[in-house]
Structures are given as structure tokens and as C-alpha cells.
């Protein structure tokens, strides 16, 4: 399998690739398994309700970010250097603003502390060496097990000048779900931030009109969060009431 390759490991030699070795590795790996038959609390009717294998994703990459064997990563060190220099011009240290960097699958992600988000995106847009003119919106991801930083806001940025692509990720907690709005820098994020608020409950401070965009105005809850069940409300049709999927009879 190629999965070993993405985690930055070299290809296995023939001896290590024997079934007994691979099986041992699989049992030893830090994985929480749950489910198979008999799983509850899922709207799935395939008989495999809740079958999941958890394994944490790669969480940190050290310099150099450019991997000579992967042409997709060619500009990553340049971008990081330019950002570091550019932040210094506004008296911000790269280490303070960016808590960590992840290079995975030919993509670079800057995990930015939320206090510094506006500084970082302003530099990303305006610095001639960076010039990320196009923000492709923001997208929420809910990690309930990531205590203290459950809600992530993920921004994809594209530089047309340099033909580069990066990702900026900001985290906040469920108790204090506030992230500064970047609408003043990238007006296109207006609706994207409203969508992230609607679906995840992330409050984008400074947004001109943070209201729900997809769900009705009087909706309760934020449907894309992991603690919000699929469906969530009964379906009514011609007087009949059908319970939401998570409360229907389970065949698992």
C-alpha cells in the first residue's frame, strides 16, 4: 500500500513487507478501533454501523518544508521564509503567529493563532513575495476529541501571481468559539464565514452581518458539528411523522 508513503516513511524492504510483519505493525499502531456489528448511534443501515478506525493525522513538520523528491512542495520554503520576513516588518514573530506547520500530500498548512490571523492574511495578500490574491473561502471542521481546540477554520489561499496554493488553519474551543473575521481583507469570505457560523457555530468577530445563510433564521443548533445527529428532526409529510435517521430502527 502507498499509505506508508504519505506519512513520510521510506518504502518497506521486502522482509518488512511480509504479512506477519505488517500484521504486527497494524496491531502495534496507536489506533482506536470501534464498531463492526452491533454498533449503535448511527443512521447507517448497511449493517456496518459506526465502523471506524481512528489514527491521528500528521501534526507537525519541521524544516525544510520543501521535499526535493516532490515537485509539489518546491515553493514551500520560499513561502515560509517570505512570510517570516514579512511578519517581521510589522513586528510580529513567525513563531508567535504560526504555532506549527504541516506539509502533507504536497500541501502546506500554516496553523495560525487566532490573535494573529488578521496580520497574517494581510501580509499574505499584500506582500509582493506572497501575493495570495484569491481566498477560496473558509470551511469549518469539528474535532470534538481535540480538547480546547475543537473547532477549526480552514482557509485555502491561492496566489495567481506566483501560481501557489497554501492553507491557513485556525483553531478555537467550543467554549470560546471566536475567530476574527477576514472579510475586511478578503470580501469574498463574507458568505463563507456566514456558512461556517451557520454550520459550526464559529463566531467571526468583526463580520458585517453574521447571520445564518443556509439554515432558516430560527434554526436551533449547528448541523455540521459532530455532536449534531444526521437529520436531527423528524420528517413530516402529509400528517405522518418519520423519526430522524438516528432514531430509526437499526439493523446493525
Amino acid at each position: 500500500m502507498t499509505s506508508a508513503n504519505h506519512e513520510g516513511k521510506p518504502n518497506l524492504s521486502e522482509g518488512e513487507n511480509l504479512p506477519a510483519e505488517r500484521g504486527r505493525e497494524r496491531l502495534d499502531s496507536p489506533v482506536a478501533r470501534k464498531g463492526m456489528f452491533g454498533a449503535r448511534s448511527s443512521g447507517d443501515t448497511s449493517g456496518y454501523g459506526g465502523l471506524r478506525v481512528y489514527r491521528p493525522a500528521q501534526s507537525r513538520t519541521e524544516r525544510p518544508y520543501t521535499d526535493e523528491d516532490d515537485p509539489r512542495t518546491a515553493s514551500f520554503d520560499q513561502v515560509a521564509d517570505a512570510l517570516e520576513r514579512s511578519l517581521k516588518e510589522v513586528d510580529t514573530s513567525f513563531g508567535d503567529a504560526v504555532e506549527r506547520v504541516v506539509v502533507d500530500r504536497g500541501e502546506i498548512t500554516f496553523h495560525v493563532r487566532r490573535e494573529y490571523l488578521l496580520d497574517v492574511v494581510t501580509r499574505l495578500r499584500d506582500d509582493p513575495a506572497l501575493r495570495f490574491e484569491l481566498c477560496l473561502g473558509v470551511n469549518g471542521v469539528h474535532y470534538p476529541s481535540d480538547t480546547g481546540r475543537e473547532l477549526h477554520a480552514v482557509y485555502e489561499m491561492r496566489s495567481i501571481t506566483h501560481n501557489r496554493e497554501i492553507r491557513v488553519e485556525v483553531a478555537c474551543s467550543d467554549e470560546d468559539p471566536h475567530i476574527p473575521s477576514i472579510v475586511a481583507v478578503y470580501p469574498t469570505n463574507d458568505w463563507h464565514e456566514r456558512e461556517a457560523w451557520d454550520f459550526f457555530g464559529i463566531v467571526f468577530d468583526g463580520h458585517p452581518a453574521l447571520t445564518r445563510i443556509q439554515m432558516p433564521d430560527d434554526w436551533h443548533g449547528h448541523p455540521q458539528r459532530k455532536d449534531y445527529p444526521l437529520g436531527g428532526i423528524p420528517v413530516e409529510y402529509r400528517g405522518a411523522k418519520i423519526p430522524p435517521p438516528d432514531e430509526r430502527r437499526s439493523y446493525a
Binding site: V31, R52, Y54, L136, G137
Partner: peptide, 18 residues
């Protein structure tokens, strides 16, 4: 655009389409 997040399972953890 498609932003896909996997937790290592057989189903998407999160998908978002731009």
C-alpha cells in the same frame, strides 16, 4: 474545490465543496 478530511476510516470525516 473540494476540501476532504479523513480520520483514517472508511467514511469521510468532513467534506466541503467550494
Amino acid at each position: 474545490g473540494c476540501h476532504a478530511v479523513s480520520d483514517g476510516g472508511t467514511r469521510p470525516y468532513r467534506l466541503h465543496f467550494r
